[in-house]
Nucleic acid binder design. Structure first.
Ligand SMILES: [Mn+2]
Ligand SMILES: [Mn+2]
Ligand SMILES: [Zn+2]
Ligand SMILES: [Zn+2]
Lengths: 139, 139
DNA sequence: GTCTTGACTTGGACATAGTCCAATATAGGA
DNA sequence: TCCTATATTGGACTATGTCCAAGTCAAGAC
């Protein structure tokens, strides 16, 4: 993710302490945090960082394509730093755990032209739901 | 949707004026309203109906499988009365319009077993994004 | 190294979406 | 008609996210 910092510098970003810790949090574990979770972890490294800066920076990273927003339920958006590997998500309907999964074949092909209604379709997201081994055992 | 009222009666539901107008709103046009949109339309028929009753009733209809929740962005959930025809959604990234679409083939088949991580996968939702004809013309 | 300035950060107010609850009303059976 | 379990209501409360004016600071100019 020092790559990320370099790319941001190349785009004329000021490298503030706040942006650094947010990048570190996203880089650390390869998970899908909410904005509040990112903030909680950023505070451990930089206690005075504000919620507003976290929301601002996440929004900017999304606009630059360095992070993608993931919405699997109607709750808080999650921020996914894994943009270098195309993937979809598998969500546990018990505990909410999210795993990255790679699909095979052309997902777009499942939508017949007759069902496109003149849209220029350019993106598809797939979410699989099921119970993870832990939740299945506990039921 | 008088079918719906009958099914609800059969399940021991009290048929209140509030539940009737909510069912009528969902039945009317075949769209994907938010809870607040359902409330606004219900108020036209029954001015004193409360937000709480709309949220309560929508939640109950979802629990019964008579309506499904749809989340295509990080905004308000939408309520879809079209549960009798399996379908996915096509969303305009310009204006947010949502269309029902029917896919062909087995969507689950795109997820290799090696990518299931021991989950018992039982559901898949697909959302296609693109620009509708109107938004494409305006750009 | 110091200055300068426009970009960045901040706390808090505000907005939107949804939940919860105690008091009140009512559907539907007796 | 009466009874009461169930449903409704207004409003407080929570969760998530946005906005803004005032203060701060990164980094280029000198
Ligand atoms: Mn991911
Ligand atoms: Mn639909
Ligand atoms: Zn689980
Ligand atoms: Zn459109």
């Amino acid at each position: 993710m020092s790559d990320l910092l370099q790319r941001l510098r190349d785009r004329g970003w000021r490298l503030t302490a706040q942006r650094r810790v947010i990048a570190e949090v996203l880089d650390g574990e390869h998970v899908h945090y909410t904005a509040e979770e990112v903030h909680a972890r950023a505070v451990e490294r930089l206690p005075e960082i504000s919620r507003a800066s976290v929301y601002n920076t996440l929004g900017e990273l999304v606009a630059l394509g360095e992070v993608v927003e993931v919405t699997t339920d109607g709750r808080a958006k999650r921020y996914d730093p894994n943009v270098h590997q195309e993937h979809q998500h598998l969500v546990c309907s018990g505990c909410g755990m999210i795993r990255d999964v790679r699909t095979e074949g052309d997902l777009m092909a499942a939508l017949p032209f007759g069902e496109r209604f003149g849209f220029a379709v350019d993106e598809v997201t797939v979410t699989y739901y099921g119970r993870c081994p832990g939740c299945a055992a506990a039921s």
